[in-house]
Design a protein around this nucleic acid. Structure first.
Lengths: 119, 119
DNA sequence: ACAATAGTTCGACATTTCTCGAACTCTGGA
DNA sequence: TCCAGAGTTCGAGAAATGTCGAACTATTGT
């Protein structure tokens, strides 16, 4: 029960992260802009390629400078587990975590019922 | 562009509604407890059967009385379009709007990219 | 070492959200 | 008509969230 509650909280956190228009646009952009993510042999999620934080910012806000606000939203998405970020030189390259997106889609599709009526 | 922004906002609103643990539990419970929803010939969404607000409350909070808090959360879900509520005598019967859930699942599955890089 | 670039973190502030209790509405029954 | 039951709405207060600018960190190039 505590476990399912944890799962539920994690899922709620992901939904919450997508619940802000700016973050949803970031997520959409990241996915639409060909940012594949590979899963390592060790299970580690690694970004293969993708736009930099600056490019995301440019697309979302029009500004070329990464604002603290955009950085904040990227962090929210990252902490929720929806996107990945990895240093590449001076930049930070972003990608979506497709596993997380799949997990949410599966939840919505009704595959699982995290908690039940038996409290 | 304004249209896609609207769609995005509507989707973000649905995600936001599911982003609260209490509401996610309500949504889960509603779906797990056999609450089919039918779509009328006129396109109207009608609840066929489902638990009352009181039963939802009992399942979520353990209390039999529908608190103002639960009523608040039910309203959030309803306004977001994720659930339906319909009067049945003294009670209000709830059901999930599966179309909305499907829409979110489709979004996550990557079928559509509401907004693009061309801002 | 120094400057420039790319992004993050911090502090502050306004806004929103969540929760609670009290008052209210709407319905059905005596 | 009056009362009880089932939810909703309202007002207030605490907590979380989003935004901004300034200071900070990390990396590259000279």
């Amino acid at each position: 029960m505590t476990e399912t509650a944890d799962i539920e909280c994690r899922i709620a956190a992901m939904f919450r992260a997508l619940g802000d228009p700016t973050r949803l646009r970031i997520f959409s952009f990241l996915r639409s802009c060909c940012c594949p993510v590979a899963v390592d042999e060790s299970g580690e999620v690694r970004t293969v390629q993708g736009p930099t934080a600056g490019e995301v910012c440019c697309s979302i806000t029009g500004s070329e400078k990464v604002s603290s606000t955009l950085s904040f939203h990227l962090k929210e998405l990252r902490v929720a587990g929806l996107i990945t970020m990895e240093r590449r030189g001076k930049n930070r390259v972003c990608g979506v975590n497709t596993q997380a997106a799949d997990e949410l889609a599966a939840f919505l599709a009704g595959g699982e019922a995290p908690t039940g009526c038996d409290g």
